[in-house]
C-alpha cells in the first residue's frame, strides 16, 4: 500500500531521515516508535506530503505522491494534540471537512457517535478541552472511511474510556484490511493494537519486524521489555 523507496530528509542542519526504504501493507498495524527526534514525525509528514523528501520517492497505492494531492483521499490523519481555529464551531468543522472531501456517502460515524460529538456541535472549537479536541480529531480521521490511517499519539489526552473506544475502533479497522500507522510512546497501548513494530533511531531503521517475531526473539511478553532487551542484544544505543 505504501512503498517508501530510499527517502532521506535533510532540514537545514539536521538530517531527520537517512535512506529509509520499507513497505507498509494492507492489514498491517505498524507501531512507529523511537526516541524523540528519531524521525517518526518526519516520516509521517513525508507520507502525507507535508514535508518533501530531499531524495527518494514514496508510492501510495502504486502512485508516486510527489506533486499530487488526490492520493490523500485514502488517508485519514490524526495529528498530535491540535489547535483548531478558535471561533469555528464544531459543526462547521465537520461540514467543512465534508465539503473538502467531496464524497459523502459511506461515512463512518462510529466514533462520532461513541464520543457524542453532536452534543458539542454548537460549541466553538476554542472552548473545547484538550480531551474533547482529541475526540473531535479522532472522529474526523475515521469519518471518511480511509484505507490508510496515520495516527500521531492518538490516545494522548483522552480519558481511559475514550482511549479504549479508540483502540477498539483501531483494531476493528485493522481487521477490515486497512493499513494503520501509529506513533506512540505508550507501549501498553501499542501492544494491544500493533501487528508490526518499526523502530527508528536517528533517522534510520533500527528494526522493522512483526510483534510476534520480536517477542519470540527476545522471549518476552512485554513490548517495552522486549524492545529494551533487543536493543541490548544488538548493542543499539540511543
Amino acid at each position: 500500500m505504501i512503498d517508501i523507496q530510499h527517502i532521506s530528509k535533510q532540514y537545514k542542519s539536521v538530517r531527520a531521515i537517512s535512506d529509509i526504504a520499507l513497505r507498509f501493507n494492507a492489514g498491517q498495524s505498524v507501531a512507529l516508535i523511537g526516541p524523540n527526534g528519531s524521525g517518526k514525525s518526519t516520516l509521517m509528514k513525508c507520507i502525507l506530503g507535508l514535508a518533501k523528501p530531499t531524495s527518494g520517492n514514496i508510492y501510495v497505492q502504486q502512485k508516486n505522491i510527489s506533486g499530487s494531492e488526490l492520493y490523500r483521499t485514502d488517508i485519514g490523519y490524526m495529528p498530535q494534540i491540535i489547535r483548531f481555529p478558535e471561533h469555528m464551531l464544531v459543526s462547521q468543522l465537520f461540514f467543512m471537512m465534508r465539503d473538502l472531501r467531496r464524497h459523502t456517502n459511506d461515512l463512518d460515524n462510529e466514533l462520532f457517535e461513541a464520543y457524542h460529538i453532536r452534543d458539542m456541535f454548537a460549541k466553538p472549537l476554542g472552548g473545547l478541552s484538550g480531551g474533547m479536541k482529541q475526540k473531535v480529531n479522532a472522529a474526523l480521521a475515521f469519518m471518511f472511511n480511509p484505507k490508510i490511517l496515520i495516527l500521531d499519539e492518538p490516545t494522548a489526552g483522552l480519558d481511559p474510556l475514550s482511549a479504549e473506544l479508540l483502540k477498539a475502533k483501531i483494531r476493528k479497522e485493522k481487521s477490515k484490511g486497512k493499513l494503520i500507522i501509529i506513533s506512540s510512546h505508550i507501549m501498553a497501548d501499542l501492544e494491544e493494537i500493533a501487528t508490526d513494530v518499526l523502530f527508528l533511531i536517528e533517522g534510520r531503521i533500527a528494526f522493522y519486524k512483526t510483534l510476534e517475531d520480536l517477542k519470540r526473539e527476545t522471549s518476552s511478553n512485554n513490548l517495552g521489555r522486549s524492545i529494551a532487551s533487543y536493543m541490548a542484544e544488538q548493542k543499539i544505543s540511543i
Binding site: R72, P85, L100, R101
Partner: peptide, 17 residues
C-alpha cells in the same frame, strides 16, 4: 501562525496547497 496547525490538518486532506 495561529492557523498553522490547522493548515497542517487541512493539507493532510486531498486539497492542493
Amino acid at each position: 501562525y495561529n492557523a498553522y496547525e490547522f493548515t497542517e490538518l487541512i493539507l493532510a486532506q486531498p486539497i492542493k496547497r
